[in-house]
Design a protein around this nucleic acid. Sequence first.
RNA 1: GGGCCAUUAGCUCAAUUGGCAGAGCAGCUGACUCUUAAUCAGUUGGUUGGGGGUUCAAGUCCCUCAUGGCUCACCA
Length: 507
Amino acid sequence: MREYSELEKNRIAKLERLKAAGVEAYPTRAERTHTSAQALAAYAATEVADSHVPQGDYTVAGRIRAIRVMGKSAFAHIEDGDGRLQLYLKINDVGAEAYQLFVDGFDLGDFIQASGGLFKTKTGEATLWVRSFRMLAKAISPLPAAKEEVVDGEKRVYSAFDNPEARYRERYADLAVNAEVREIFRARARIVSAIRRFLDGNGFLEVETPVLQPLYGGAAARPFTTHHNQLKQDLYLRISFELYLKRLLVGNLERVYEIGRDFRNEGVSFKHNPEFTQLEFYWAYADYEQVMALTEQMISTVAQDVLGTMKVQYQGQTLDLTPPWRRLTMRDAILERSGVDIDAGPDAASLYALMQAKGIKTDPGAARGKLIDVLLSEFVEAHLQQPTFIIDYPRDISPLAKAKPGNPNVVERFEAYLAGMELCNAFTELNDPFDQEARFVEMGRDYGADAEETHPLDEDYLRAMRYGMPPNGGFGMGIDRLTMLLTDKSTIREVLLFPHLRQREGE
RNA sequence: GGGCCAUUAGCUCAAUUGGCAGAGCAGCUGACUCUUAAUCAGUUGGUUGGGGGUUCAAGUCCCUCAUGGCUCACCA
């Protein structure tokens, strides 16, 4: 049973009074001739003899963010999608009845439409001298911010709404009250659109592949499971797009990409959300060197488009995205930071022994790829602040990547790191159906003890590959993480409109 | 899943050694026809996250549950 707070009861009473006075509190239509920014720009461009006399005819609409009543006149600030505008209401100009209605019936958070001319107050703020106004939508619940004003071009916030849990649970209120939060999502949209422009401009075709899949694959992650009732078939929410996009290369689509949602049934952290937005592209006749070059070009171009610079401020440091980025083999990276030469440990047992000798604690049963992963995340990642490509990964943790010619234990794969965080993952794609099948089987053996990490053998994918798949380079990147980097946010939740939170009791 | 921390009015936060739960803003009443954190006077608002315990007395100490934050683990 919903219970209204004292403040909400007040507003409901006001709503009743407005209705009694014949005011429609939720009219069907609104009118607007100018946004706040358009009105201010139009006024600024107007020749004005006496700035204290209202000029022009503007109708604006927005949410009331501040009200200052001084007896028989009142000031208010409204906020719309473009910014803020001050309103000035005077009893002589709007009429006693309407004026009283405003003072008694309008609250912070209400949507209002107002018409009049613009003038400058004696403190110099361009302000709408209201001739008429009306309610567009009455707010029943008070917005969770007490006060917020722009003074001397500087924003001052009082009692800001900044409790993270409340902000994420009631993101609508967060957005309504915190303009800088709206800005994050505008930036996010510009990032996605810049990526599309870049890939489209490079001859890539945007495609859409199934989210509901009979088999999951393309990454090592636990899937969400669902069920199709009529077909009586269990389905998985995809954990990656990879195997479907590469089927398209078999179909002679040479450059494809998809931007969409992946789902991974795993832990939630500052850089993991159960669903996240992924970009993957596949590029026929290219290898990982070409993909690397395209990657640094794409990300630096996006930064330039969105931020106007390739030197990005992130958590107090400057990340320079200007190509070319540093390239470092995984072996050298690990050797440099931990003193362990992974080439000297060609199998799990010998590598484990090397790590033991250095006093590095690990799980003795771990596969070689896992051990390398430990070395990388423990010794190297934190040092990879400036953009760096870590290249040439061990074969046994890369079942979809092609081996480096002359070195069967190493595959042509890279990951880009920025601010100590993995940003993207790419490789020269494996296109040999026999090798691919062997890898699938191998994965089943290496991780067989843990059924959840077993990579299911995708027979249809192998069938596709047997029709012939051109040599190609593939790429995957989390859009959320790129957005974190470009908006200077330290957690993924800040760049997701509705991050996953545990359900509250009773909801 | 583990560890640490947090949860007090609509919002942001106080509350000494366990000793009458407070402030600012918002709200309400009144004054005020160029204010901008408007100002001035008055005033309402609390199951201190839920449950249990110790105590003459618990926001404060103990147990437990819930949610969140940070962190570790997990995450080719």
